[in-house]
Amino acid sequence: MKEEKHIIFLFFLPSIIFLAVLFIYPFLYGFYLSFTNEEGEWTLENYLTFFKDPWEVRTIWTTFKIALPATLISILLAIPFSYYMRHGIKGERLISFFLILPVTLGTVLVAEGMLSYMGPAGWLNQFLKAIGIIKEPLRLTHNYTGVVLGLIIHNFPYALLMLLGYVSGIDPNLEKAAQILGADGWYIFRKVIFPLWVPGIAMAFSLNFVMAFSVYPTAVLLGQPSGPTRVMSISVFHWAMEKFNFNVGSAIAMVMGLIELIVILVVMSLRQRMFKGGSMVGKA
């Protein structure tokens, strides 16, 4: 029915307009800005401004140096944790509450709290000194370590809950079947759970990496935003919102988006190569 089709289209109209105006158009606009100067003439100047300045180019490396370890640590920690929690555990509600807490409160509050808690006179250093592990307070804020720690505290629970969502979706009968066929715990993990979990892990890694790669408040508040933790977001913000040069700002944002896209594509293709057979989660 012709009429029917029109009506179906009407259902989607609001969100199509929404997507077009608020998401696709700004992207295209940013793309356009990045290739033009303030007079609206086409130019590569904006990209050159970024790539010619070693101080700016270094932000790429700095961002990787922060985002990659933070993501890897979060995911590698989250894998055993979520594996242990896959069938539900005692006190799960309370535990999940504490896990969701830093995710919900957001990076700003966590960073503000970490500044005091992990500062030289904070509880953490007091405690470590009291039990005799350290003599001098550890420097955990206003440096690289602070940013990575801040990211992990925010991203680890996020990764954990996400991985938990995937692994608990794997039919528990598969484990039982494998067990009856003679497999021990490690064998089940390697041959049954892990292969079925890989798509989820790849997805969790990608999302966490992208989140960490665009880190802003954590890098500013917990790090040294004018030096060792000057990440790409800071550079973008600096050009766009402090110098009010949206052209260069957009150009750097485009570079940032491109890098994120490349990393996602690499992870996804690795996943494809690792396990060709199944990407289907076993639900019957």
């Binding site: 039919d171 009968n173 598969l174 039982k176 079947a177 494998a178 009856i180 049954v192 292969p195 079925l196 396990f275 057979g277 199944g278 289907m280 989660v281 076993g282 019957a284």
Partner: peptide, 15 residues
């Protein structure tokens, strides 16, 4: 012992 599951529980990633 062997067990055949109601939902078969075949390993979806294995031939």
């Amino acid at each position: 012992f062997g067990l055949v599951f109601q939902n078969y529980a075949l390993f979806p990633h294995l031939s």
